[in-house]
Design a protein around this nucleic acid. Structure first.
Lengths: 303, 303
DNA sequence: AAGGTTCTCTGACTAAAGTCAGAGGATGGA
DNA sequence: TCCATCCTCTGACTTTAGTCAGAGAACCTT
């Protein structure tokens, strides 16, 4: 990797941790240990099951229990057994707890303001824009791709969201039963594979490919969650599928798509797909694409 | 301040501390407590006086002493009295210490790489560019302005650097004695004032203004250190002087400058100065500028 | 109804990261 | 020379932020 880029990233890390870190301590770390503050924050207005809380913060159960006890004795939260399963307990903020949380929220705002405050208007606009870009790209870099079984809950979640979206977008609606959907077996190794993209453990996109021996590979069910768009994830999924297909000896990729999916169509074009005549009779398709795959000699782009 | 901007800053803080923080721990926090690692880092290749070390890291003397003892017993550093003042002690890394430090350095590089790794080439370029912008503007926001006496060591440091630079830049060289420099008294309240800009405590720029009662204020000795340019600091100094002059009842600003100082001339133009005929016989000046100052009703731009 | 599992809690620890109050040697100035 | 000051170190504490090993209640399956 480019050494100048690495230097810049390190300089960025230094400046940001120093500046944001110092201010963070000054504003937020005033009167309450960070552990408690994080809890207070994560519990939220609505309350939360203790085990969820533990999972989200990645903390030991004993430790969380003690922190909760401390919030309780300070009168900031109440912990009560859940109704349906009395092993699980639910934390809720008291009125006082909500006030305390609002205070933290205010401090976070002060912190943000104090970063912008010494700058003039155009500088502020530029800083905020650059922060948005960093935020977006770091988020993109946090997304992980994994091969999963098409019956995995995360895969199902993506597919259901995908179908729901197609139903909305297609002029004719969408009925999975009428479409040429591969059965799950075709997207399982060795007949194919299915990728799920995750952000912080949440599934936010998917793509499958059928790998019939001696025939073109066919990309199916590519979807990216609305909140995860514009992160280059579609391209990343395609790259990963192409690499894996090529590794499997495949030399041609195919796919079909509906005219309503304009941004997908743009992606296929810019990714090197050429429009070709219909190669199947998928009732929902208006466009058919094909791409010759080069030899699988280039490096994989991450997992 | 704009609420959308504040939201973006907070989102940025969250993403960055999460992503960089998690990786930071994973890469750097492996085998050595952070305290020791910070020391190891800060001591540097050349060695350092203990009190400087303490000052830079902002740590208690007892604590640093203990950390040093621990580095010594691990054979990573040696602590010896300074020659000229045997109260002061100097830390130096041993060979082993230097190796350990290089290891930390390598880890920092890995950390930076791992942030870029999942991205494709154009995304990397965009992320690095945005990081550079954030870095630059956060640095700009960290600069503080303070009114100091022109005899203060930081002021003198700036002035000496300023003269040295003029000597280099002016075709004719520069001899302070030949120039119409105000004596220090004219840049002291209430006859005027002198600002020093500092970054992490280091003086990196200055500007003075004479405030003769009933006459135009005159800006003098504006300088920004080479490493602190392109941060909008010149403009910030001018804004601050203008505000203070206006608060002092002054309605016109004046200044003279040399033709070699092209970026300063551009700044004066874009800041609303108009070129006017010579109003003094400064031997080193080629351009004279004037600006009408509006009423002092607008908000101050920070300190 | 029994036995295994899940969830939370308590007790007993540990390590890190400091803080505070001197002690004691070295130095500088009167 | 003597005294105040500077710099570093030591001893005695404290607070955070955990970890680990059960105990005990609730639940689920068979």
């Amino acid at each position: 990797m480019d050494a100048a880029q690495i230097d810049q990233v390190r300089r960025f890390n230094r400046t940001v941790t120093e500046r944001v870190g110092v201010l963070h301590d000054r504003y937020l770390g005033r009167d309450r240990p960070i552990g408690e503050a994080r809890l207070l924050w994560e519990i939220g207005e609505a309350g939360l099951d203790v085990r969820l809380l533990r999972e989200r913060l990645g903390l030991d159960s004993g430790y969380v229990s003690r922190l909760l006890r401390s919030l309780e004795t300070d009168g900031l939260a109440t912990v009560e057994p859940q109704l349906r399963d009395r092993r699980v307990r639910t934390v809720r903020l008291t009125e006082k707890g909500r006030t305390e949380r609002a205070l933290l929220d205010g401090r976070s705002n002060e912190l943000a303001s104090s970063l912008l405050e010494p700058l003039n208007t155009p500088q502020r606009a530029r800083l905020v824009a650059a922060m948005a870009e960093v935020d977006r790209l770091l988020t993109a870099a946090t997304v992980t791709l994994a091969v999963v079984d098409p019956d995995h809950p995360d895969a199902r979640h993506c597919l259901l969201s995908y179908f729901a979206e197609l139903r909305q977008l297609f002029e004719t609606g969408f009925d999975p039963a009428r479409s040429l959907l591969p059965d799950a077996g075709e997207l399982r190794p060795t007949r194919g594979l299915f990728l799920v993209a995750r952000l912080h453990g949440e599934p936010i996109g998917c793509a499958g490919v059928k790998l019939p021996p001696g025939a073109p590979a066919e990309i199916k069910r590519m979807w990216v969650a609305p909140q995860a768009r514009r992160l280059g994830l579609g391209r990343r999924l395609l790259t990963e599928l192409e690499t894996r297909a090529a590794r499997n000896g495949c030399d041609t990729l195919r796919l079909d798509t509906n005219k309503a999916l304009t941004s997908a169509i743009n992606l296929y074009h810019s990714f090197g797909f050429q429009e070709v005549p219909a190669f199947n009779n998928e009732p929902y398709a208006h466009h058919w694409f094909e791409k010759r795959v080069t030899a699988p000699s280039y490096p994989t782009e991450a997992a």
